[in-house]
Design a protein around this nucleic acid. Sequence first.
DNA 1: TTGAAAGCGCTAACAT
DNA 2: ATGTTAGCGCTTTCAA
Lengths: 343, 343
Amino acid sequence: MIQHNKVTIHDVAKIAGVSITTVSRVINNNYPVKEATRKKVEEAIENLKFSPNLLAKGLINNKTYTIGVIVPSIANLFFPAVIKGIECYMKKQGYIIFLTESEGLPKEEQRISKAFLDRQVDGIIIIDPRKENIKNGFFEDISTQCPTVLINGYNKGIKCDFVLNDQEIGTVEAINYLIENGHKNIGFIRGSKSYSYDLKEEIYFGLMKKNNLKLNKENIITIEDGNSILTSELSRKVIIKRLKNNNNLTAIFACNDSMAVGVINGAKNIGLKVPDDLSVIGYDNTIISEMIDPKLTTVDQNMYKLGEVAAKRLNEIIESKDNTYTKTIINTKLILRESVRRI
Amino acid sequence: MIQHNKVTIHDVAKIAGVSITTVSRVINNNYPVKEATRKKVEEAIENLKFSPNLLAKGLINNKTYTIGVIVPSIANLFFPAVIKGIECYMKKQGYIIFLTESEGLPKEEQRISKAFLDRQVDGIIIIDPRKENIKNGFFEDISTQCPTVLINGYNKGIKCDFVLNDQEIGTVEAINYLIENGHKNIGFIRGSKSYSYDLKEEIYFGLMKKNNLKLNKENIITIEDGNSILTSELSRKVIIKRLKNNNNLTAIFACNDSMAVGVINGAKNIGLKVPDDLSVIGYDNTIISEMIDPKLTTVDQNMYKLGEVAAKRLNEIIESKDNTYTKTIINTKLILRESVRRI
DNA sequence: TTGAAAGCGCTAACAT
DNA sequence: ATGTTAGCGCTTTCAA
């Protein structure tokens, strides 16, 4: 590619017949410039289609109007909503976003964070950060070098800014809803490794106990990959096996919508009607919950707001309005649709 | 936020007791350095946790290892797959990606492109670029300033690099498949404004004619927004209306999977079984096509590959291996699942 | 109101 | 093999 010689502030100065200092003053409008001079400079800028090199500016100002965002995967139904929330907010502040996928690998999170730092980003947001990197102090370290906000990850005693959805309340509401509707034999389907699944399972146990409902290990169904393109299909298969074996369940709580979809399809496959024969409740309120038949009753994670609030918080840190570490909880909301019935 | 003083090449030089030039040489490994000196420098780098400022490097080298990607919307089922294709390829080459949403607005595409240029990106990829900005020469102009590749947008006579999926063949195969399966009354559902819908409709008309099938204006169903969260629901409503009015259709071609899902759900709502009473074929092969019941027969757009090929092409341009403009067509593939039956 | 000059952190001749 | 110096494109003292 033959690179055109980029026009610089020098070219503008030459054409306008002034010094580069004056051009800079016109551009940034931060020192008095005689009106006539300003006109000349503005014309030169216009004619040459000059636009300042932000690398050079960044080098001096220690400000790039750039932030970095790390996400496990973008080809997924809910992370994009969070990202959208971040982007909409930051865009208004004049920022542009580096977006990179970690594929859920702790080492990748580290590599990417460093790549961001090298590029002098003004801030970093990590969506669904790996527990490992929270616990080992990696993000605490990054936080000291650059404003950082973690979305949907948390560990006590770690000095970082956290923004979380209220998984606890969300899960409680969902499972209580099943119980209130007369369900006693409630299954629980989850992915293998994530703080989120552990937390939800804990709550499930607690509520079952509290309501004197039968706790059966067989009712906990775990699939390997809870968060990929395969999740729905894995869930479908496993649920068919489970229901064929021993179907005493009247309802299932799924840790996310993809699993819920798999459960619904699996139930259909073996001739069970949802919600007539089996009630299903999901988590996340992704777009799929509107598309599936029956429409999915699920917990709205408020992903967009999660992103927006994290961005807002990041902006505060960047602008030094606040230098304490905070933990912000975003409320969830149970969305009633068609996949749960009263028995 | 209290910014720590960042450690620079000077600090390393001081600690190692050498000049900054020597440090630079060790880092870039491009000039001979005595082994002992190298050791000293490497130790200093290690101790200070030095990492070079890429703004400064970029300023000199005219190379930022950064590319910009513009996409209409990220909260969508198929763009993320394209982006993933781009990211995976570019990541291997050491690049990092600016990702920004245009919300389908031509002015935004322009604003963002300029923001990228100001940040000295090494290249730009636009997914689903607005026709307006192709035709008015905007992207042609950008192409002269910076390596640029357009995905799924095209106009004759415009000097740009294009990467496209073969919508023509894809549509022909899909509709022919319906015809081969004995369908004669075939409906067509589309969004309102996009080159893509026009093209598909044209092909639909052509094939119907060619096969002496009845062409009925009523069989063309247009919904306002073909590409948003609302698409599926809009399609569901409109199809219910259409089928209730006058149901002579045995099959429907949907311009994308979201519409197809709406059609399937609408059919179910009024007691029609898919594919027993109505066959449905989609376009895109998004994740939803596997999740819906029945699983959707659709055209695989090969979104990942689309992104990958565009990235590869961009890389070629950046590395000056080629300075002609090319048009690359990615083949599509009909994916047979469960939503079409022979009659 | 304007300009000269130093310098942001780095690289690359050029010199030694 | 190593260091000195100019300079990438810009901002900001300082001086005029």
